[in-house]
Amino acid sequence: MSFERIKPHLPWITLLVLVLVVGAADSNFLRPSNLISMAADIVPLFIMALGMTFAIYIGGIDLSAQSVANMTTVVATIALPTFGIGAALICILAGVVLGGVSGFVTTRLFVPSFISTLAVGGIAFSAAQYMSGQRALFMDASLRDSTFGWMTGSLAGIPSELFIAAALVLGAWFLQSRTTFGRALKAVGAGEPAAVASGLNVNRIKIMAFALSGGLAAIAGLLFAVKLSGGSPTLANGFLLPAIVAVLVGGTPLTGGVGGVINTLIGTLIVAVIRSSMLYFEVDATQQQMVFGLILIVAIALTIDRTKLRVVK
């Protein structure tokens, strides 16, 4: 067995080993109620990572996801009293538009995605500060419960967040593997010049991928706002790193073309297990960022397809 043959299976093997190790160290960890609450806690992050998957799948990156989610928490809180459930639509629309702008700037104006998304993230951050008046805003509790209560409730003992996550991952999986758009995404990720040569409208596909990433980041922000019952321009800070880590440890390489949404599901679970295991092993919470930074480097180094990079810049 060569390493290249094991590589596609590495993510779920890692997940299994991690779960067993942590489970052996702490028997409470494997209790179903603990596993379920752990999974429910990670849902906003998972949704953001799901969006990020599309950006990375085509060989780009979306560094604006966190700012978009931040902005959505503010938008959701402000729009809720006037628009009710329509606030959700406004949020998603805002995310899709911002993602679309990133895509447009990347493809039509030839600005590398890590710069264009950084810039769009700056714009979103300014917008969030403007709208919130640089304060933390709070949702009216009864209004929140009547409009978005279904997001945070539970059905048959299972938190509804998990159903939302399941619906989104099914939708994303369908889009990725059962539609022409999904095939086109893979073509672009596998080799852009070849995709252009075979007549695909690559620019449109890439813009749509970034729009999807923005839209999903917005949903993540919306869910987060509902969970915490409020919004602020910095509420979702700290999401960007674990979201990128989740995509990469799941096995979607930075060079794109392989992996996909199911990989990100596994990747997010790995992140969740690492996070809670750090609690059990009493690693200080302040060290999380350092640990995830190091994991990120290892994950990129293991997954990246170097044959695609003629020169590593």
Binding site: T286, G293, I300, A301, V312
Partner: peptide, 22 residues
């Protein structure tokens, strides 16, 4: 490790911030 510099340095930046916090 032949990692594109924007990602290598972004990750190192996160490690740095985490280390400063530590």
């Amino acid at each position: 490790l032949k990692i594109p510099s924007f990602m290598a340095s972004l990750a190192m930046g996160f490690v740095g911030t985490g280390f400063a916090l530590l």
